[in-house]
């Protein structure tokens, strides 16, 4: 699937908006353990080294134990609030969590979804099913979404844990920050022995 034609003006539009002083808000979501906080850090430090102002918000504690996790990154010439009111992009490492957070998607906003399901444990013991029609429901709310098999891609690369970086690669194509700053940030924030494979994962996501 190549969405470049449909979304190729997104990068340029935001390059202009940021110059005008508008703040870009990205909401990160998924399930504890998927690398959400790491994703926010890599984006935020790329923004920092590209010379933009940036703020990140994350919540620790009880949420980590298999619960849903939310983080946000806001970038611009000057950023005030660390939290998001309306997200210009939703980055979700899990399908159900993408749907759950759609209510804060900005008009014209974009949703990046990892084509991956993690069944909430509470569904097992209440003998309920994981919703089957998530993508259908999402498409009723917005047409601006990209479904990407980040887990399959990272597995093929031999690093199943890098699915967050695959999706981040795709995200990077919509954010007015040059690729080299992302690479620099990956080198800084990923353990040395996994840097190379994560850069591969990032590039795979970028070209998807």
């Amino acid at each position: 699937m190549n969405n470049d034609n449909k979304y190729n003006n997104y990068y340029k539009k935001w390059e202009k908006k940021i110059k005008q002083g508008i703040i870009m808000s990205i909401l990160f979501t998924g399930v504890g353990g998927q690398g959400i906080i790491k994703s926010t850090t890599v984006l935020a430090e790329a923004a920092l080294s590209s010379g933009l102002d940036v703020k990140v918000s994350e919540v620790h504690g009880m949420a980590q134990r298999g619960g849903n996790v939310i983080g946000s990154v806001r970038i611009g010439r000057k950023v005030y609030s660390p939290t998001v009111e309306k997200a210009d992009i939703i980055f979700s490492l899990e399908k159900l969590e993408a749907l759950r957070n759609l209510n804060i998607l900005n008009d014209g906003g974009l949703v990046l979804i990892n084509d991956y399901e993690i069944v909430p444990v509470s569904l097992f013991f209440s003998k309920q099913e994981y919703p089957k029609n998530i993508i259908e429901n999402i498409s009723k709310i917005t047409k601006n979404f990209i479904l990407l098999p980040a887990n399959d891609i990272s597995k093929k690369l031999g690093e199943p844990k890098a699915s967050n970086i695959v999706l981040l690669g795709k995200l990077s194509t919509f954010i007015p920050i040059e690729e080299k700053f992302f690479i620099k940030s990956i080198k800084k924030n990923i353990p040395q022995k996994a840097v190379e494979i994560n850069i591969k994962a990032f590039k795979e996501g970028r070209k998807y």
Binding site: M62, Q64, R65, L96, L102, S122, Y130, I141
Partner: peptide, 17 residues
Amino acid sequence: KRDLGLENIPKRPPVLC
């Protein structure tokens, strides 16, 4: 405000590992 009907989707409470 749009009502997206997202209230009824399954919750994901934290659990013991």
